[in-house]
């Protein structure tokens, strides 16, 4: 396992999580997460369901409060801030299940994303989104509830573009989508968020490995393995991290 490049320079920039524990109600899901995203880096967070991937993202964006540990973005702590304050610090979170506003049109959804700027200077951003996802141009005045799952996912990513983030969190982008669409979405990410550091949570490791430089594998609420994507291309390595099993993996 390669050394985590973020350790020791938590003040220098990017996103740093240290010893984060969190949960819902009395349950605990995260048992001490250490994770770093350096400026410009795209990181995949993999792991079986229930590993705490989504919760990790929700801690960063303030939807779930961390119980212990620290979370900093470019040196400033995010702990104790409300989600809307964290958005103002430049964190865009594309949540699981898209969560587009079903009664808003595509346009209204995109304009809502400029809320923190008072809804101004949004036209260029919208143009950029429509260029990346021409299908949204055709559906511009349609209520988002009537879009297909793929279109909703495009819209959800489009909202993050309009937010002009310093850090993007994307949760389970590929869930329930056809493989060809998944490929398209990932290739657009490369363009739309070329310089923006990103944390991408995925159930489907192979596609994430293609588009991310660094990988953290979560299981049981802890980071079980970290390293460059190239280290995780073999199935054994992943399956081992997933199941904790040392035997029974096809070789």
């Amino acid at each position: 396992m390669a050394a985590d490049p973020g350790i020791g320079d938590g003040r220098s920039g990017g996103l740093v999580l240290r010893g984060v524990t969190a949960g819902y109600g009395r349950s605990s899901v995260l048992h001490g997460i250490d994770l770093t995203v350096r400026p410009g880096q795209r990181v995949a967070v993999l792991g079986p369901n229930g590993a705490g991937k989504t919760t990790t993202l929700r801690v960063v964006s303030g939807l779930v409060e961390a119980r212990t540990g620290e979370v900093t973005l470019d040196g400033g702590s995010l702990l104790g801030l409300r989600p809307d304050e964290i958005v103002r610090r430049g964190v865009a979170h594309v949540p699981q299940g898209r969560r587009v506003f079903p009664d808003f049109t595509v346009e209204e959804n995109l304009r809502t994303a400029a809320y923190t700027r008072g809804g101004r200077d949004v036209d260029d951003d919208i143009a950029m989104v429509l260029e990346a996802f021409p299908r949204l141009r055709d559906r511009f005045g349609v209520r988002a509830g009537f879009l297909s799952g793929g279109e909703q996912q495009m819209l959800a990513i489009g909202r993050a573009v309009v937010q002009r983030p310093r850090l993007v969190l994307i949760d389970e982008m590929s869930l329930g989508l056809a493989p060809i669409l998944i490929k398209e979405l990932y290739s657009r990410l490369d363009v739309l968020f070329a310089d923006v550091p990103a944390v991408i949570v995925e159930q489907n490791p192979s596609i994430a490995l293609e588009h991310c430089g660094w990988v953290h594998v979560l299981a049981g609420g802890q980071v079980k393995a970290s390293g460059p994507a190239s280290e995780f291309t073999s199935q054994e390595r992943l399956m081992q991290a997933y199941t904790g099993a040392v035997e029974g993996v096809p070789s």
Partner: peptide, 13 residues
């Protein structure tokens, strides 16, 4: 429509 998604767009509850 969705308080949590609104919060993620920066809308203060």
């Amino acid at each position: 429509q969705d308080p949590q998604a609104a919060a993620l767009m920066g809308v203060p509850a």
